[in-house]
Amino acid sequence: MKSIVLSSVVTALLVFSGCSTKEPAVDNKTEEVASPVAQEVEAVTTETVASENSTINSSTNELSMNAIESKLPTIYFDFDKYNIKPEMQEKIDTAAELGKTKAKSFSIKLEGNCDEWGSDEYNFALGLKRANAVKKALVADGIDASRISMVSYGESNPVCTEHTRECWAKNRRVNFKLLP
């Protein structure tokens, strides 16, 4: 994942102001509005983190990591809430068990997500509180907190984009990702 900075936009609207008097007068100067130049500049170097974009190479380690990751559950939440529901607690217990056995050698990344309701920053915080609730539950189940990192994607990572109640419910979730 690389972000490209395309730049030198709108090098401001350079205004060479013409004489604009209230007197009726023919203006002989012209207001110059500079055009925005769009040249492509250096690419920003970023680290590749997400597992779905990384290619699966022959390394058995990575193969097993993806295999284990596919067995990890998704934890769902109620509207505007970040408490763990009882039926979700069981799923977290299963995940913690995997974390202590097969996935013992990997770090865990928790990705918090929201539905489209609520506004920008608040939604990101809500996604994060969801990830943090799952983290606390995992720690209570015996997973070392130092193995867990978190990120919130707010509403920017939907799995479903229809405007229905079912769809929104699918987006209010925390995903597990494994990192080597």
């Binding site: 994942m1 972000s3 900075v5 730049s7 030198s8 090098t11 680290e47 994060l128 994607y153």
Partner: peptide, 27 residues
């Protein structure tokens, strides 16, 4: 949100230079 930790960056529009400012886990 591409780095391991969410990172605040600063972009100078004229030079297109990007600077890392600060990172935080989660948000």
């Amino acid at each position: 949100l591409d780095p391991l930790k969410p990172t605040l960056k600063y972009v100078d529009i004229k030079t297109a230079k990007v600077k890392n400012i600060i990172s935080s886990d989660g948000m």
